[in-house]
């Protein structure tokens, strides 16, 4: 049976992202393994730049080996006040290595990332819906697999202003937006077009505009599956039909 690590509990703001571990084990054949966040925060204060970010990556790799994990989700905001750096680089590198890795202890998003990788072979960009306008939406987050980008720069994490986060630019073209619900009963997948990148303050650092149709707009305005969604390259909506 595959094992996914939940390092720290889900972030407090994920109020609609609960999962029943037994349900996941029974229906997906995946065992969720709780790992205390102290296994990472015991690093203590690390270098505030890339060396510290890589130290967090090294610690996650140790945990993945120790617990024999196929993927992880990390309660990353707990690192800000303890380790004084972010998990952004660590999660980016893991996703590039084919190990699904999600932020904020978000378990449904981790399951979605794993599903995406298994169905398409691609790592995904875990992102927040950030703006919605007629026919388009902005999505943003502070980490993504660098293999998805055409160029990137390292900057600070949005909410904290510390550590190392990623501003990446993605190629324009076909993508699929995906999300599995925590109760495993709903699976949203929609083909979209990435039409532009931007970089504004007061948002997470990687920011992409997607062209969306009325169905997607209505979904987000009336019945979204929580916050985080996963963006993967190519049009794969048909592969996700339940």
């Amino acid at each position: 049976m595959e094992r996914l690590g939940v390092i720290g509990m889900p972030s407090d703001w994920l109020i609609a992202s609960h999962v029943d571990y037994h349900n996941v084990e029974t229906n997906l054949g995946i065992q969720l393994v709780d790992i205390p966040i102290e296994r990472v925060t015991s690093l203590g204060e690390v270098d505030p730049g890339i060396d510290g970010a890589n130290a967090i990556y090294d610690r996650l790799k140790e945990l993945i080996a120790e617990y024999e994990l196929s993927g992880v989700t990390l309660r990353c905001f707990d690192l800000l006040s303890t380790v004084k750096n972010t998990g952004c680089i660590a999660l980016s590198r893991l996703n590039d290595e084919g190990i699904p890795a999600a932020c904020e202890g978000d378990i449904p998003t981790l399951l979605t990332m794993m599903l995406c990788q298994r169905l398409t072979g691609c790592p995904g960009f875990q992102c927040n819906p950030a703006r919605i306008e007629d026919g388009r939406m902005l999505f943003a987050h502070c980490t993504l697999p660098l293999s998805m980008t055409t160029c990137h720069s390292l900057t600070t994490h949005f909410e904290s202003g510390i550590g190392v986060a990623i501003h990446g630019e993605l190629p324009e073209g076909d993508y699929t937006l995906v999300k599995l619900s925590g109760d495993l009963k709903r699976l949203f997948a929609a083909n979209v077009q990435l039409v532009s990148n931007q970089y504004e303050p007061n948002l997470c650092r990687t920011q992409v505009w997607l062209e969306i149709d009325d169905k997607v707009s209505h979904y987000f305005q009336t019945n979204p599956i929580a916050n985080h969604h996963v963006l993967i390259p190519g049009h794969h909506e048909d592969k996700f039909a339940l």
Binding site: W13, I15, A16, P129, I132, L203, N223, A226, N227
Partner: peptide, 29 residues
């Protein structure tokens, strides 16, 4: 939902909770 500070993201999480708990609502930007 506003245009910055992950306002829309929080709205999506909250609206999802409302729907799970048999309420109803919508997001307006």
């Amino acid at each position: 939902a506003g245009q910055q500070s992950n306002s829309l993201a929080a709205c999506c999480e909250i609206l999802s909770w409302i729907n799970i708990n048999n309420g109803h609502g919508e997001i307006r930007s």
